[in-house]
Computed example of a mutant assay.
Amino acid sequence: MSRQLNMDTLRQNFWKEDYLREKMLRCEWHRKYGSLVKAKQKAKAAARLPLKLPTLQPTAPPAPPPAPGAAPPKAPSPAAEAPLQSEMCPVLPATRALLYEGISHDFQGRYRYLSTRKLDLPETRYLFPITTSFTYGWQLGPPAKQELVSCKMCRIESFFRKNGAFALLDPRDLAL
Rank of each mutant, 00 (worst) to 15 (best):
S77R: 15
S77A: 14
P78D: 02
P78Y: 06
P78R: 12
A79G: 08
A79I: 09
E81Y: 07
E81T: 11
A82G: 06
P83Q: 04
P83E: 04
L84M: 09
L84A: 12
L84G: 04
S86A: 11
S86T: 05
S86M: 07
S86P: 06
E87H: 10
E87T: 11
C89V: 10
C89R: 14
P90N: 09
P90T: 07
V91F: 02
L92H: 14
L92N: 10
A94I: 02
T95K: 09
T95F: 00
T95L: 15
R96P: 06
A97C: 01
A97V: 02
L99V: 04
L99K: 04
L99G: 03
Y100E: 10
Y100K: 15
E101Q: 14
E101K: 15
E101H: 07
E101A: 07
G102W: 04
G102K: 02
I103C: 00
I103S: 01
I103H: 04
I103G: 00
I103Q: 10
I103F: 01
H105G: 12
D106A: 10
F107D: 13
F107K: 15
F107T: 05
Q108W: 04
Q108L: 08
Q108M: 09
G109R: 06
G109P: 03
R110M: 13
R110K: 15
R110T: 12
Y111R: 10
Y111A: 09
R112Q: 12
R112I: 00
Y113I: 06
Y113S: 03
Y113K: 05
Y113E: 00
L114D: 10
L114Y: 08
T116F: 05
R117E: 11
R117H: 11
K118L: 03
K118F: 03
L119I: 11
L119Q: 13
D120R: 14
P122V: 04
P122D: 11
E123R: 06
T124I: 03
T124E: 08
T124S: 08
R125A: 12
Y126C: 08
Y126L: 15
Y126V: 09
Y126P: 04
L127G: 02
F128L: 12
F128P: 01
P129Y: 04
I130H: 11
I130F: 06
I130V: 15
S133Y: 07
S133L: 09
S133I: 10
F134E: 09
F134Q: 07
T135R: 15
Y136K: 15
Y136H: 11
Y136D: 12
Y136V: 08
G137V: 00
G137Y: 04
G137D: 00
G137R: 05
W138R: 04
W138H: 05
Q139N: 14
G141Y: 03
P142V: 06
P142Y: 02
P142D: 02
P143Y: 00
A144G: 02
K145I: 01
L148F: 01
L148Q: 08
V149R: 13
V149E: 08
S150L: 15
S150G: 10
C151N: 14
C151E: 12
M153F: 11
M153E: 12
C154P: 00
R155A: 10
R155I: 14
R155C: 10
I156S: 11
I156Y: 06
I156K: 14
E157N: 13
F159A: 11
F160R: 15
F160K: 15
F160E: 13
R161S: 11
R161F: 07
R161G: 02
R161H: 10
K162T: 13
N163C: 04
G164R: 09
G164P: 05
A165Q: 13
A165F: 10
